[in-house]
Amino acid sequence: MATSTLLFPTTPSSSLSSTPHSPPFPISANPRRLRQAPSSAAAAFRFLRPREAVRAKSDLLSLISDQERGLRTQRDPSKRAEIVVAIEALAAAAKGSVTTGPPLSATWRMLWTTEKEQLFIIKNAPFFGTEAGDVLQVIDVEKGTLNNVITFPPSGVFFVRSSIEAEPPQRINFKFTSAVLRGSNWEIPLPPFGKGWFESVYLDEDIRVVKDIRGDYLVVDRAPYSWKE
Rank of each mutant, 00 (worst) to 15 (best):
residue 148 N to P: 00
residue 89 A to W: 00
residue 13 S to Q: 15
residue 121 I to K: 04
residue 64 I to S: 00
residue 190 L to Y: 08
residue 122 I to H: 07
residue 157 V to Q: 04
residue 191 P to L: 11
residue 219 V to Y: 06
residue 53 A to R: 01
residue 153 P to F: 06
residue 110 M to R: 08
residue 157 V to G: 02
residue 193 F to S: 14
residue 11 T to G: 07
residue 65 S to Y: 12
residue 202 Y to Q: 05
residue 133 G to E: 06
residue 170 Q to H: 13
residue 217 Y to R: 01
residue 124 N to G: 06
residue 42 A to M: 08
residue 167 E to F: 05
residue 55 R to P: 06
residue 58 S to F: 10
residue 112 W to P: 05
residue 151 T to V: 09
residue 226 S to L: 14
residue 126 P to D: 06
residue 141 V to M: 05
residue 192 P to R: 07
residue 180 V to I: 11
residue 115 E to D: 11
residue 157 V to K: 00
residue 102 P to R: 14
residue 224 P to H: 00
residue 47 F to T: 02
residue 7 L to E: 02
residue 157 V to I: 05
residue 72 R to D: 12
residue 126 P to V: 05
residue 72 R to T: 12
residue 50 P to T: 02
residue 136 L to I: 13
residue 31 P to W: 07
residue 128 F to C: 11
residue 193 F to L: 14
residue 161 R to W: 01
residue 15 S to N: 01
residue 49 R to S: 05
residue 143 K to V: 13
residue 173 N to P: 02
residue 206 D to Y: 03
residue 70 G to A: 03
residue 208 R to K: 15
residue 34 L to C: 11
residue 51 R to N: 10
residue 75 R to I: 13
residue 59 D to V: 10
residue 227 W to R: 10
residue 152 F to N: 04
residue 57 K to V: 08
residue 213 I to A: 08
residue 180 V to W: 02
residue 121 I to R: 03
residue 134 D to F: 01
residue 133 G to R: 01
residue 211 K to Y: 08
residue 95 K to C: 06
residue 211 K to I: 12
residue 104 L to G: 06
residue 64 I to D: 01
residue 2 A to M: 07
residue 127 F to G: 10
residue 29 A to V: 07
residue 120 F to P: 12
residue 156 G to N: 01
residue 111 L to H: 03
residue 52 E to I: 07
residue 116 K to N: 13
residue 33 R to V: 09
residue 221 D to N: 15
residue 160 V to N: 00
residue 5 T to L: 03
